[in-house]
Design a protein around this nucleic acid. Structure first.
Lengths: 337, 337
DNA sequence: CTGTTAGCGCGTTCAC
DNA sequence: GTGAACGCGCTAACAG
């Protein structure tokens, strides 16, 4: 049933070495034999066993990718980017979803090592100390996406969340807003939760504006409903802020939804600014002012770094920071004094 | 550098077979040796080579997944569903993006066979004859998502696109609409393009309503901009339909966007109905009436079928049809006579 | 219980 | 040019 290189050799009346040579073009073989062999391959329907080949060549041609979830444009964008450059370099992808579970991530790292991945791309909301240790002694080129990893030879691909949040907040200030709130993501998420929150605080501080605690809420996640609840909390304060910075577009959508439900207008009553510029942002009403960055490009950079590491440039210790930009649309207006 | 089972055996002063036995718990071993071996494993940092293991066991524990694109909630939903049940059964995923290219799909099928995938899940917009042939003689359990494959032992997981489109259209008719148009996806896409179009036509015919060609447009894709262009084309007709069925939610969004730009109201001037009920649908204004189905569930079913085939139930010839339902929201209203 | 041996399917030395 | 033989790292008989 299962046809091996031996069957082809027998049928062509040559040795398996010769078959291997023509299949891999590794050594010259006479046209005569070449033809006989190709015919035999055709007739038997022989297909080389890539597993056996990987074992002997010690090259699997595989990258392992770990993401917290996939049903989220940010991560599917990453994967699409990674896939596009992997394909160029003839690599294939093993994909696993960690569900943000650090234990699962560690387990996957081991599995990928055991499965002889040639490179690993890890997108984690948060890297704990023991994970960093495992990464350090993994012995496989690895790129981390989304958060800077200090003291590790794994390069990372990030955007400057702090700066972006700072700029978003500062834009609100420039519009004349002084009472500014924020609906954040969970702070255990270093990149999208913590750093964006810090950027917000620092922007306020840099203009000597107070950060009023009742105008800040830490959400449970990054979903529309989290934004809805977050805005509800801000609304329970004695007075409402005139502008709100949201940790992501979906949160912004939820916030707007809540405000509408309360008969409040965006941006007339409250300016709202998002983060990510996912497709949604330019579709909803009002179209969202937000921070644009490109998960797809991050994925591409990460995979490119990986291939570079494989080609000698071992362990560039860089943290590559990709660009972001403020996209002004309709959800923010100057404070009407 | 690279530590093998031999190193562990040497260090523990036993044979490699014994090491293999305790690691796989395949045969009883004395506690004494067991401990010595586990210690040696610990000290050397030994991790079994899964590639060598797969070769000998003829089990890779891998499913291959082929999708046309990933940055699209439909396909990322599929993948998430597939991943969730694969994980339950201890399988891992190889993921490739075909970009709808039939040649690439065929190539990937070969690659997956060569790489000894134990099962394959193929989501293709259209299966050509030669692809079906390849599938037929692939020798690997395979499940097709999105389109019914006749005359093939590969089961498929689908929704009844024809029926759903019929129901959506019929709903518009029940609302009193008589001048009904459609913005379709490309018809070479069997499931989302062709079948939905056919359902639309048949619904009109069943009520003896004409299908006016100038109210039908075949889009180039399933994007917002395709919907925009499509509506523009319908608008160029002498008179406008009072209701439009769109092949997917994004097309519907584009159509609405165009109408708004022309100063027309949805649903007052034109009712619009979408398809897919992606998250978008309940977020935009007006909230979209649409057909709901679950890509996640399709992915789960596909992977479940695959594992069943692996466990003996060879080649169930079923085409499993998952449920859909009409979700009525704000983008459709009765025709004001 | 444990060790020795024979492969899994293939690429790659060597001799010829 | 070509073939025989070895080994990749491991599991599964087979003996003892």
């Amino acid at each position: 049933m299962i046809v091996t290189i031996r069957d082809v050799a027998k049928r062509a009346g040559v040795s398996i070495a010769t078959v291997s040579r023509v299949l891999n073009k590794s050594k010259p073989v006479s046209d005569e034999l070449k033809k006989r062999i190709m015919d035999a391959v055709e007739e038997t329907g022989y297909l080389p066993n890539a597993v056996a080949r990987s074992m002997i060549q010690k090259r699997t041609g595989l990258f392992g990718v770990i993401i917290p979830e996939i049903f989220n444009p940010y991560f599917s964008g990453l994967v699409e980017g990674i896939e596009s450059v992997s394909k160029e370099f003839q690599y294939h992808l093993m994909l696993s979803v960690s569900e943000k579970d650090p234990e699962r991530e560690k387990e996957l790292l081991q599995i990928y090592r055991s499965r002889q991945m040639e490179g690993i791309i890890l997108a984690a909301a948060r890297l704990e100390e023991d994970q960093k240790e495992i990464l350090a002694r993994l012995g496989i080129p690895c790129v981390v996406i989304g958060q800077r990893v200090k003291g590790l030879k794994a390069p990372s691909v990030v955007i400057n969340n702090w700066k972006a949040a700072f700029e978003a907040t500062d834009y609100l200030i420039q519009l004349g807003h002084r009472r500014i709130g924020m609906i954040g993501g969970p702070f255990w998420d270093v990149a999208s939760g913590q750093e964006r929150y810090q950027g917000f605080r620092d922007a306020l501080a840099s203009r000597a504006l107070p950060c009023r605690e009742e105008w800040v809420s830490e959400g449970e996640g990054f979903l529309v409903e989290d934004g809805y609840k977050g805005m509800e909390i801000l609304h329970s304060a004695p007075e409402l802020p005139t502008a709100v910075f949201c940790a992501c577009d979906r949160i912004a959508v939820g916030a707007i939804r809540y405000l509408e439900g309360q008969g409040l207008q965006v941006p007339e009553d409250v300016s709202v600014i998002g983060f990510d510029d996912e497709e949604l942002a330019s579709i909803i009403h009002p179209r969202l002012t937000t921070i644009r960055h490109s998960p797809f490009e991050m994925g591409r950079r990460a995979a490119t770094l990986l291939t570079e590491m494989l080609h000698g440039n071992q362990s560039l210790q860089t943290a590559e920071t990709l660009e972001h930009s403020l996209i002004v649309r309709e959800s923010t207006i100057p404070l009407s004094s």
